[in-house]
Write a protein that binds this DNA or RNA. Structure first.
Lengths: 195, 195
DNA sequence: CTGAAACCTTGATCTGGATCAAGGTCATTT
DNA sequence: AAATGACCTTGATCCAGATCAAGGTTTCAG
């Protein structure tokens, strides 16, 4: 309903809010993309060309291992970023996929545009530093949990901290995100739901 | 070149190199700390007050779970950073420990000093953004490996990519870092070493 | 409306890695 | 030089979670 660019600008209010000049620069240097369910924003072998900000919908980023098994690394819902940062910055082919789980709307900032924003408006350096720091902390916690907690505990934690995702995303994908098989997740759910 | 501050300045040459003004600002706003073996830079319950850059030695960051088991989250050797970013920025008590595995020398930048550097010299925003981006990518890869590879593969990968650490750090700590028990790591080593 | 694909469940069996237990080798300290 | 504790190894047993197999339900494109 509201303009996707607008949503993105508002998002930055959570950090150092953008002044009008920065807002219009951002609008000029980004573009809206709409994806249908199962549409890809990135596929293995391609260079990840843009930082994507989710305005509406839900996406996942995953890898396929040598046995052909998928491993979900990240979900992104409204107001979250999704990008293969390694591929994006090095401009090297990615080993990841980014796929829409629902019809989705994202705002994309391509590599040269982001660099331009960084150097022309240092506030973007600052804001993206803070954004990544937060993601980094989350990721560290996830890795610690992966090593320190049982599948049951990890699932309980996921449901508690991402109730939206738990309801929105098929179990197969949650299982893969947590590092268990779909069968085992099903059993966990069965156990959990009796009381 | 043996001056720890000097080593830190040189480190930034890998990113946007610092000009003389930035170098002297950095020197003024950081301080050298020496730790003996088993000395702590951070303990559970304390606020992590500083970003630490390792000039010499080797440290680890870990958590102790409710059963009293340690889980190593990160090692840091010469020219690497170690900090609980979450605790540092939120100025909240940490749940982590940072301990020297050897007598070590680090350069510390405290919270107010880093903020001052960020606002006074925006290049630090940029450089720390890039530093964290790199760490973030590494962490993502580790999490993917944790979910997609066997203990044997993870250990092989560790030895290949961190031969220095593999030789320097006791097996117990490597095991914990990889998410296996020391006993199992010992068996992996036995298997691996017979050609 | 229909068929195929996506998704979930449940049972039977198997296995990578954990746990428990014991002994052995170094270093450091006293 | 003994003693303490850190570190590594090896064997026996156990279990959380994987794998394999089958059937059931919902979703949706044609």
């Amino acid at each position: 309903m509201t303009d996707p660019h607008e949503v993105l600008c508002v998002h930055f209010d959570r950090y150092l809010a953008l002044d009008p000049a920065e807002q219009s620069a951002l609008k000029e240097r980004s573009r809206v993309r709409r994806l249908k369910r199962r549409g890809f924003l990135l596929q293995e072998g391609e260079v990840c060309r843009s930082y994507a900000f989710v305005v509406e919908g839900c996406l996942r980023m995953y890898e396929i291992d040598e046995k052909g098994v998928e491993h979900n690394l990240q979900f992104a819902q409204e107001n979250e970023w999704i990008v293969d940062i390694g591929s994006f910055h090095a401009e090297k082919p990615s080993s990841l996929f980014i796929e829409a789980l629902e019809p989705s709307t994202v705002v994309c900032i391509e590599h040269p545009d982001l660099l331009w924003l960084y150097t022309e408006h240092p506030k973007f350096d600052r804001n993206f530093r803070v954004i990544i720091e937060d993601l980094f902390v989350e990721l560290q916690q996830r890795l610690l949990r992966r090593n320190a907690s049982s599948a049951e505990q990890r699932y309980a934690h996921f449901v508690q901290h991402h109730p939206g995702l738990a309801a929105r995303v098929p179990g197969v994908h949650i299982a893969s995100y947590l590092g268990v098989t779909p069968e085992f997740l099903s059993r966990l759910r069965a156990k959990t739901s009796k009381h």
